[in-house]
Structures are given as structure tokens and as C-alpha cells.
Design a protein around this nucleic acid. Structure first.
Lengths: 139, 139
DNA sequence: ATGGACCCTATGGCCGCTACAGGGTCAAGA
DNA sequence: TCTTGACCCTGTAGCGGCCATAGGGTCCAT
């Protein structure tokens, strides 16, 4: 009984805070199913698309890659299986995030060192410039 | 008096731990000057290129964008000017890094919450999946 | 009938490379 | 001298994840 809401791509965009082009892109790369078309060839989305796109956006906001999102969607569709696989994807992503944080902290440390050495003279004697050119390096 | 070392692009690559294609790319986008050519049209780099490329690589390792690297190079070349401008570029970058760290920490927090809720049942009742689909949301 | 808001497809751009394909060059060994 | 193989050249396409055009078509209100 399709008393379904029919949403244009613009409606969908507003409802999910997504650009119109992004929905089309998601359709192309297979994270959002191609919807029915109107007689004028407009995309006509139903509530299932709205849910789907919201899911995708939320996952993207959480930093999951589109590949991971595809995995999560597939997993989420198989309602009877154990959610351990979902948990695994999330944990894997958490690990990536943690690695990135660690990397950035190391970076921050180096940058702070660098900046701390700047004595505000001329470039010729600038420690930052020297530190970047490794032969006249840290010596 | 050019008793200069003449390096092939491969030599340069080995010396700076850079891919051959990357040097060519840097030349295209103007962070590495086009070197002289041999009779066989091979690139012949001098020590100035080696220094330059090392600088670029080090700056990139520190997460500076190519635009920022271009700025730094230009600043580093004008040896008489105050190095405040260099300092500014570095500080700006440090701020970007700090913002990114903060964002990733917030993300980590959300992910940890999410994962903590997984009760290892079936997908149908998986909290992670529910949290991602915002209508049946956190309620 | 007309205007303007919307929609369509196709294509190119962003960043910072990387990886081909399809050639040319060069030095060492047989 | 010829051949092999390592190197080099240019040009183009691809990655992820979209965003922004160009050049059209559609729909609805006036």
C-alpha cells in the first residue's frame, strides 16, 4: 500500500541537510538505491530513502569511509545476524581515529618545538627555516 | 663554477626518499624549479634542487599543505625579511592541527559510546545500528 | 504564454599524489 | 656490434568524496 511520501531530490536534500549532488553521487556509487522516477524523469524518493540517507550521513559524520558505510548498510540489512560484525567495523574505525589522534599529537609536538625556537629576527637566521632545511639542520 | 653534482631524477628520489613522479609533480605545480636537461632530455638536478626538495618533503611531513609550502619557500628565499611571516604560517598550521585533534577526540568519544552499547545480540536490536538511524534514534 | 524554481545528465575540478601506457636513452655485457 | 635491461620522457587516468558548472528539460503559478 504505497501511500508513501514522495520526495523530490530537493526535499530529500533539505530533510537530510545534504547537497542535491551528493544524493546523486551516493546513487552512482551504490550507497543509496536508485529511486522511482516520475513521468518527467524526476527522482521520487520514499521514506526508506530518507532513512537510508540519514544513516549514511550520520555514519559519514562519524568519519566512516564510504566503503565502511557500504559494509554497515549491508550488515544493518541482515537483521537476524549477530551484530558482532557491526561492532567490528566500528572498533576498526575507532582504532583508525585513535591512530590519527596520536599522529597529530606528535605533529603538534614538533610544530610547537619549531615555533618555540623562532626568535623573530630575519629569515636568514630563522630557526624554523633552518629546521625545515635538513642539512643545516637542528645543529 | 659549476663543479656541481648532477643528479638524475632517480638519484634525487633516492636521496630524498621521494617517488620519481612526485618530483615531476612538484615541478608541474611550481614547488620545485625545472632543472636543466641533458642532451637526451633527462632532468639534471643540482644540489640546490636537492635542498629544495628536502625542504618541501620535511614541510609536507609536518603536514603543511602545498600552498603553505609555497608560502614558506617564498618567505625562506627572502633572507633579509623578518621571520615573523614564517612564524605566522607555522602558527596557523599549528592551530589547524589543534582543531583537528579536538574534532577527532569528539569523534572518538562518540564512537566509544556507540561501541560500549553493543550487547552482541542480533542486528535487529543492535544499538549501533539504531544510533546510526536517527529516527529510532537514541530513545 | 511566461517566468522562475526546480530537475536532469555529463563533465571537470579540488588535493596530493600514484600508476599506468607507450615510447626514448644509455651503459654494460656477450 | 647488438642486445638487454635499467632508467628516463610525456601524457593521461585514477584515488575519495564530493562540489560546481553547462546546457538543457519540467512544472506550477500568474
Amino acid at each position: 500500500m504505497p501511500s508513501e511520501t514522495s520526495l523530490s531530490i530537493g526535499d530529500l536534500a533539505r530533510a537530510t541537510d545534504t547537497k542535491v549532488e551528493t544524493s546523486r553521487w551516493y546513487e552512482r556509487v551504490g550507497v543509496l538505491a536508485a529511486p522511482a522516477r516520475t513521468s518527467g524523469n524526476y527522482r521520487a524518493y520514499g521514506s526508506e530513502h530518507l532513512e537510508r540517507l540519514s544513516f549514511v550521513r550520520r555514519a559519514r559524520d562519524l568519519g566512516f569511509s564510504l566503503d565502511q558505510v557500504r559494509d554497515l548498510l549491508q550488515l544493518a540489512d541482515d537483521r537476524n545476524q549477530s551484530c558482532d560484525a557491526v561492532d567490528r567495523v566500528a572498533r576498526e574505525h575507532l582504532e583508525q581515529v585513535e591512530r590519527k589522534i596520536a599522529d597529530l599529537k606528535a605533529l603538534r609536538h614538533e610544530l610547537r618545538d619549531l615555533i618555540g625556537q623562532c626568535c623573530h629576527g630575519t629569515v636568514a637566521e630563522c630557526r624554523i627555516v633552518r629546521a625545515l632545511a635538513p642539512d643545516r639542520g637542528a645543529a
